[in-house]
Design a protein around this nucleic acid. Structure first.
Lengths: 230, 230
DNA sequence: GCAAAAGTGTTCAATCTACACCCATGA
DNA sequence: TCATGGGTGTAGATTGAACACTTTTGC
């Protein structure tokens, strides 16, 4: 008997950014997809990714893919799940280690990047190649769950940010209104942000404080594996 | 240039059971390890597992390994993490998809199984092969975290159980005392267990009720991927 | 002063925690 | 009837949601 071919190993990444959306009061989640240039699923949209180079870390491969697709660097990157059903890829088994990432929401970067890369709103995706629709749904669930108990929303923002901006990010991700007063107290008492002492000038109302993320609490978000994940 | 060999895919499983322990008031967590019969790490203890057969589901491979090692069937099985550092295995890269499982704590089954399989207390392990000590630590963290917000502890018990038994499992996993009165109310109001109407006779005190796990809430434990995982 | 958003205070209800106490059985 | 664990009640503390209110700026 002939030994069946070993499964192929691939790394894919679900990349989230926030963007203003004409169809919604909230900002909404967007993600970049790449058009497949060969079979199977030729011409359909798929998650960015590819085979795993022999000497590359899994997380590094995910970050490289992300940079190659969007030109951006992930502000947050975490392993999501490994999908390996024998039938998920017609024509040869592929086991995909999937990561999910948050990137800073620069409006310019979320524009069209090229013919074969395009950003889509996460809740209005076309039919994707392979089982990628299911993967994105799971990534969305993880993002929404984690935003509630962890403090990762700042990854959508720049180095410093106002509480109102962070508030808007939480609202956009969770798709529900959050009381600004209670939100402020919850975040402040969590110790995850630090007052920079600066304020934003030039608004036509009371100038808000600028905060910075407190790096010393990051490890908690990921559990024991945290420190080793970029 | 020669293309470097593709990484090898393996599936390993961290298997937890509860067992009485002379050195502790609580029951403690034990897990089975297998002695390696070849290099690398020849003679050292390692997590049960092996290469992924070409046509086998990941979770099925984990369950098969579990059965082969312990003769038991998992009451709970979930993917833990995929470990793929290029340097984690001397002599050829191995990417390991690791599962964790809970099995019913039959004292007999947790006895010595053979020369090359042995159960160890989870917090007093020898130095294991590869990065397996780190993997077990992560699995322990996941188990303890998940017992608090999910209701998986019943997987250590039989079909029916008393609240005192479930209480003892929680105490053993979390390694701290839990008020029996409050524990009862928390579990009862969660809707995860159902009163069978039966009681345990023959105790020399008030006979406790027997409960059964409520299957209809299981899906919540695993999120959107739940239903497809055995 | 006025509009607008920043930021604070306060109330009420829900939940958690600790612990007192009653119940049902075997010996 | 007593010892033992099963099971219930309840007061106080903590947390969370709702919303009125005060502050600080630009115009």
């Amino acid at each position: 008997m002939t030994a069946p071919a070993q499964a192929t190993l691939a790394v894919s990444t679900v990349i989230f950014a926030l963007r203003s959306d004409a169809e919604s009061d909230f900002k909404t989640l967007w993600l970049p997809l790449v058009r497949r240039t060969r079979e199977p699923f030729h011409g359909q949209w798929a998650l960015p990714g590819g085979g795993l180079p022999a000497a590359e870390e899994l997380a590094t491969a995910a970050a490289r893919t992300l940079r190659g697709t969007t030109g951006l660097t992930p502000k947050y990157l975490e392993q999501l799940y490994t999908f390996g059903d024998p039938g998920r890829s017609p024509g040869g088994r592929v086991v995909s280690v999937v990561y999910w990432a948050l990137v800073e929401s620069d409006e310019a970067a979320v524009a069209e990047v090229g013919d074969n890369v395009q950003w889509f709103p996460a809740d209005r995706l076309p039919e994707l190649a392979f089982d990628h629709n299911r993967i994105v749904e799971y990534a969305l669930w993880r993002l929404r769950t984690k935003v509630e108990y962890s403090r990762i929303a700042h990854a959508f923002l720049g180095e410093t940010f106002t509480l109102a901006q962070l508030h808007d990010v939480h609202e956009a991700v969770l798709q529900k209104a959050l009381d600004p007063a209670n939100f402020r107290r919850t975040i402040e008492s969590s110790g995850t942000i630090v007052d920079t002492g600066e304020r934003v000038a030039g608004t036509r109302h009371r100038p808000p404080r600028l905060y910075r993320y407190n790096d010393s609490v990051r490890a908690v978000d990921l559990g024991p594996l945290g420190p080793s994940i970029g």
